[in-house]
């Protein structure tokens, strides 16, 4: 059981990292960015492509992939979000335009085979691949009867550190205050001289970079990289996480991520893998219906 809890914490870290980016955009822009899961997938795909197709060492490949994902965030902002804001379109239309971008991102990877237009990015079509063995050293530790894989431990540490950094930035820096100001009241922020468009663009960059990182860590640890890892593995679970934590709340997303990890592992142990798959959506549905402000309430919302 302790081993299972460890697994829960590890998978929870990835959920949390993914969901933090999701919720950041919702909190600041009031928009649900459904292309976030496609960016997650591209984080894994780009890293894999640089390592396996272009022979790059893992670390620089990961850094480049994260930056590429950040730039994709800007693409989302400029193509799918800003034109709608200019027209004062309601937030619900951004939901649809980001679905459009997600469809495009996934289809490009899915259709890429060797010899096709995007073969420099991906050659395996709809198949699932894994990083070549030895890409990242993966020592295993045995502590008191528990097995701890090095990569999973690393992922846990990276996630926790990043979320602490993000929390610090949001809470104690001028940029973080500006983000919270824009989230709360765009008009007031504008009158303070804050360039709201620039804040939005930075939010998308950071959110997508985090999403891409979550994706590449997922691909590394679960040895599963395919065009569908975003859509099938985290998109809707990420929604469940941010709904559990209260939409727009960063601490809520972190707690929600670990909570979902625990719930799933518990459901798996107790009822088996079939129930595990559905439990996130049952939770999503129930929380929205019973407590749409999230499990942890409005107090956490204050801290964006």
């Amino acid at each position: 059981m302790t081993q299972q809890v460890l697994n829960a914490i590890f998978i929870g870290s990835i959920y949390a990292l993914f969901a933090v980016g999701y919720t950041l955009v919702f909190g600041v822009l009031d928009v649900l960015n459904l292309a976030h899961s496609a960016v997650f997938m591209l984080g894994a795909v780009v890293t894999y492509s640089l390592v396996a197709l272009h022979g790059m060492p893992f670390l620089p490949a990961a850094v480049i992939a994260i930056l590429v994902c950040g730039l994709l965030g800007l693409l989302i902002e400029f193509v799918a979000l800003r034109p709608l804001r200019r027209r004062n379109a309601p937030p619900i239309s951004a939901l649809i335009s980001t679905i459009g971008l997600a469809l495009i991102f996934v289809a490009i990877v899915e259709q890429a085979t060797s010899g096709s237009l995007f073969s420099w990015l991906w050659q395996d079509g709809a198949n699932s691949v894994r990083f070549p063995t030895g890409t990242v050293p993966n020592p295993t530790y045995h502590v008191g009867g528990l097995t701890i894989e090095g990569t999973k431990l690393g992922i846990l540490i990276i996630s926790v550190v990043l979320m602490l950094v993000l929390g610090y930035v949001m809470r104690f820096t001028q940029v973080g205050r500006a983000l919270r100001a824009v989230a709360e009241n765009r008009r007031a922020a504008t009158l303070l001289g804050i360039n709201v468009d620039r804040i939005f663009a930075s939010t998308l960059f950071v959110s997508s970079a985090l999403g891409g990182l979550a994706g590449l860590l997922f691909g590394l640890a679960l040895s599963d990289i395919s065009p569908y890892i975003g859509r099938d593995q985290v998109e809707l679970k990420g929604l469940a996480v941010i709904v559990l934590g209260g939409m727009g709340s960063i601490p809520g997303a972190v707690l929600g991520g670990y909570l979902l990890g625990l719930i799933e592992v518990f459901a798996f142990v107790r009822f088996g893998s079939n129930v595990e798959a559905g439990v996130a959506f049952a939770a999503l549905f129930l929380v929205l219906v019973l407590r749409p402000q999230g499990l942890f309430g409005a107090r956490l919302r204050e801290r964006l």
Binding site: E184, N185, A188, L191, L304
Partner: peptide, 10 residues
């Protein structure tokens, strides 16, 4: 601005 528009959560 009118109505103060202070940032209530900050």
């Amino acid at each position: 601005p009118e109505g103060r528009e202070i940032l209530a959560r900050l």
